[in-house]
Computed example of a mutant assay.
Amino acid sequence: MAADRDAVDEIRAIWAVRRPDLDTGPIAVVGRILRAARFLQQAADDWLADAGVTRAEFDLLSQLRRTDAPLRPGDLTAGVVGSPAATTKRLHKLTAAGLVTRTPDPDDARAARVALTPAGEQLVDDLLPRQIAAEARLLEVLTPAQRESLAGLLRTALIAWEP
């Protein structure tokens, strides 16, 4: 692969030969976002492994750290990427690790509220600066202006896509 081409360029070139009737322009954006997301997820999982949590679990812990009151699992699911079943599985692991507690919901006996334990709060406080620094290192391949532009473009898309 040439230094100025990536895997998405190669995919589009192959489609241009196999299906020249198709405009593969959307793949240039969506394909790169998906590939970047996988790369960023793996990088985060790698550095968080020492703390015993995945990026998805850290996102749940961080969401709890940003709130002043315990949350329902459904509220947590709405704030992260994943299904209710994935949130439940993650919460079981985090509860077993002593990072969160689950208590009955005072408004609905069938539901629960989730809160950070002191250990969970300390873990987020310890890891958050490291996460930000690790993400900053990954983004050093872009100039500050490019990072700002990319953030703005992604914001525009997410405002349109998110409920």
Rank of each mutant, 00 (worst) to 15 (best):
M1D: 09
A3S: 13
R5W: 14
R5L: 09
A7C: 05
E10R: 10
A13R: 13
W15A: 10
W15F: 14
D23H: 07
P26T: 01
R32A: 01
F39T: 03
F39C: 06
Q42K: 13
D45F: 06
L48W: 02
D50L: 10
R55W: 15
E57F: 03
S62E: 08
D68M: 09
R72W: 01
R72P: 00
P73H: 03
P73S: 05
G74N: 13
A78M: 04
G79R: 02
G82F: 04
S83N: 08
S83F: 03
P84C: 05
A85S: 13
A85C: 12
L91K: 03
H92I: 10
T95E: 11
T95S: 12
A96W: 10
L99D: 02
T101Y: 01
T101F: 05
R102E: 02
P104E: 10
P106M: 00
P106G: 02
D107P: 06
A109E: 15
R110F: 08
R110T: 02
A111D: 08
A112P: 06
Q122A: 14
L123S: 05
L123R: 07
D126G: 09
Q131I: 11
L142T: 04
L142S: 06
L142D: 12
P144V: 01
P144R: 11
Q146H: 08
L150G: 06
L150A: 08
G152C: 04
L154M: 10
L154C: 06
T156K: 15
L158W: 11
E162I: 11
